[in-house]
Write a protein that binds this DNA or RNA. Structure first.
Length: 309
DNA sequence: AACAAGACCTGTAAGC
DNA sequence: TGCTTACAGGTCTTGT
């Protein structure tokens, strides 16, 4: 479920609930593992300790105390929510954090692709999952020059390249499709075919689409929601993701879908160049980003919600 | 080293 | 209606 914008929203939700004053008084598990075995002995590094900082690195949420850092990755279906008074546990509620102010935080994760680990604070710099991650896409380190240089000699599709967390973090299947649409570049071209000019476009559009999604509260498809259970709305602005056979908002061509390295990939063969797909017709670009104007975006009206009788 | 494909899980929706 | 299959926001491992 969660790419960088969604993880960022969840992290902000945790910031609102936790602080130096409000600590985690107790960590409780309702099963013994997610993707990793749940940490038992190191719980004491977190429990009753002052919260120094809550941050995000890539798709990981980090809750730092003097002794330990609690690490949460949401996998595909992980959520954190506040458990209201007398609320019964639900299916797939795996972890509960009792807070010093009486509130309870619940981690729910049907598919259990998530991660929940505790690392000694003084060993964080050698924590394996954060080693060899690429730059944050919204940081100044993620530049066109960097993308151009790292893509030399790489034959994998640009789409797969951008989803490689060693290259750049936080970009997943939704936002890579969206960013490539705005950059007008086919997901199929080899990474090494990028020109510097194309790199400029891609970097610009990745930053823009991620920031706009954060501003919209993320994309809520199926079950994603924030800690306070609010839904994001960015899915309403998706130009290609999840829009198979619907018409492109820019040129009306039908949106294509193809599996690339195991993930469904959506794009417009007409707007996105390099699909070894001929016509490069310089479409008169009247509608650029319909994004900022909620009035635009509609196009063909119907949303990809099922209306099943 | 680089790349593709499969594995890990469960729920939901589509297809028959 | 009910059974079967395909697919889902992400890593991580295995094999070529």
């Amino acid at each position: 479920m969660p790419e960088l914008p969604e993880v960022e929203i969840v992290k902000e939700g945790l910031v609102k609930v936790l602080s130096r004053k409000t600590t985690i008084s107790e960590i409780e598990y309702y099963r013994k593992d997610l993707r990793n075995k749940l940490p038992v002995h190191s719980k004491k590094w977190i429990e009753k300790q002052p919260i120094l900082e809550i941050s995000r690195r890539a798709k990981y949420i980090l809750i730092k105390t003097p002794l330990g850092v609690l690490i949460s990755h949401l996998g595909m279906t992980g959520t954190w929510r506040i458990r209201s008074k007398n609320e019964a546990l639900k299916a797939h509620d795996h972890i509960q954090l009792q807070l010093s102010n009486g509130k309870k935080l619940i981690y729910n994760d049907p598919r259990r692709f998530g991660i929940f680990e505790i690392v000694a604070t003084n060993k964080m710099n050698s924590y394996r999952r954060l080693l060899s991650l690429g730059p944050e896409p919204l940081s100044a380190d993620f530049t066109a020059e960097y993308l151009f240089a790292t893509s030399r000699g790489r034959k994998i599709p640009i789409k797969s390249f951008l989803m490689d967390q060693k290259i750049v973090v936080g970009v997943g299947n939704i936002y890579v499709c969206e960013a490539l649409f705005f950059a007008k570049i086919s997901p199929l071209i080899e990474a090494q075919q990028l020109t510097l000019e194309m790199s400029v476009q891609i970097v610009k559009e990745i930053k823009e689409v991620l920031q706009q999604s954060i501003d919209a509260g993320g994309s809520s498809i199926n079950d994603y929601s924030s800690v306070e259970a609010t839904k994001g709305s960015f899915q309403k602005q998706h130009q290609v993701y999840g829009r198979k056979n619907q018409s492109c908002h820019k040129c009306s061509e039908l949106i294509q879908v193809k599996v690339i390295s195991g993930r469904s990939t959506f794009w417009c063969v007409n707007c996105q160049k390099g699909s070894n797909n001929h016509h490069e017709r310089p479409k008169n670009n009247t509608t650029r980003k319909t994004l900022s104007s909620p009035s635009g975006a509609q196009g063909s009206g119907r949303q990809h919600r099922k209306i099943k009788r």
